[in-house]
Each structure stands twice: as structure tokens, then as C-alpha cells.
């Protein structure tokens, strides 16, 4: 099975997302994941007011949009290949699902960010 003609476009998003997530995601997983879940973050730092204040800044919005959206495209593209490597050959459907999730996630991110601040 030959790869899709549009593959170069997805690969661009995959690469951008790979770079984004490689550099930024570990820090978030540590603080917004592990640290938060173990209660290490002070309450003042996670208060609603502070969150809104932080996220109202356009740079923060842009950053989060890029991080979330590109991470989703990165992951979607890779998982599309994983599924095929695992022996499930339904390229059209698999691509539709993973890229669909990424598009949906991007839309939701835009929507959520627009409603903050």
C-alpha cells in the first residue's frame, strides 16, 4: 500500500508537533500532571482568577493552541502508523479517526481559549 499523496502535509504537522511536544510537554506533564495531582501546587497558583489572568494573555493563548493542536496532530499521525504496524490495514478509516480527533481538539481549544478572559 502506497502512502497517501497528502502525506507531506500531515508530516509537516507531525514534525512541528513532535518538536513542540518534545520541548514543552515534559514540563507540563510534571507540573500540570504529576505535581498538581499530588497536591504540590499551592492553592493560590491554581485559583480561577489567576488561571484566567494567565490565560488572557494573547501569547499564552497562542502558545497553548499551538501546543495542544500540534501535539494532537503529531500523535494522530504517529498512531495512524502504529495501527498499521500492528497489522490493522484500514488506512482511510484510521486516518479519518486520528486526524478527526486532532481537528476536533483544535476546534475545541480555539473555542475554549476564545471564551477565557
Amino acid at each position: 500500500m502506497a502512502a497517501q499523496k497528502t502525506e507531506s502535509f500531515w508530516w509537516l504537522l507531525f514534525s512541528a508537533g513532535g518538536m513542540m511536544s518534545a520541548i514543552f510537554l515534559p514540563g507540563h506533564v510534571f507540573f500540570q500532571g504529576l505535581a498538581m495531582q499530588l497536591g504540590w501546587l499551592p492553592e493560590s497558583a491554581t485559583s480561577y482568577g489567576r488561571m484566567v489572568e494567565l490565560l488572557s494573555h494573547p501569547i499564552a493563548k497562542l502558545y497553548l493552541l499551538a501546543l495542544i493542536s500540534l501535539s494532537l496532530f503529531h500523535a494522530g499521525h504517529r498512531l495512524k502508523h502504529v495501527v498499521s504496524d500492528l497489522g490493522l490495514e484500514a488506512p482511510g478509516l484510521v486516518a479519518f479517526i486520528f486526524y478527526g480527533v486532532a481537528f476536533l481538539g483544535t476546534g475545541l481549544t480555539v473555542f475554549a481559549l476564545a471564551n477565557i478572559g
Binding site: A2, A3, Q4, K5, E7, S8, W11, H81, D85
Partner: peptide, 11 residues
């Protein structure tokens, strides 16, 4: 090289 049988098949 840039076609579907080319580089894009490589993971």
C-alpha cells in the same frame, strides 16, 4: 522520491 512509494512510506 516524494511520491507515495517514496519517502512518505518510511516510518
Amino acid at each position: 522520491i516524494g511520491s507515495g512509494e517514496g519517502v512518505w512510506e518510511c516510518t
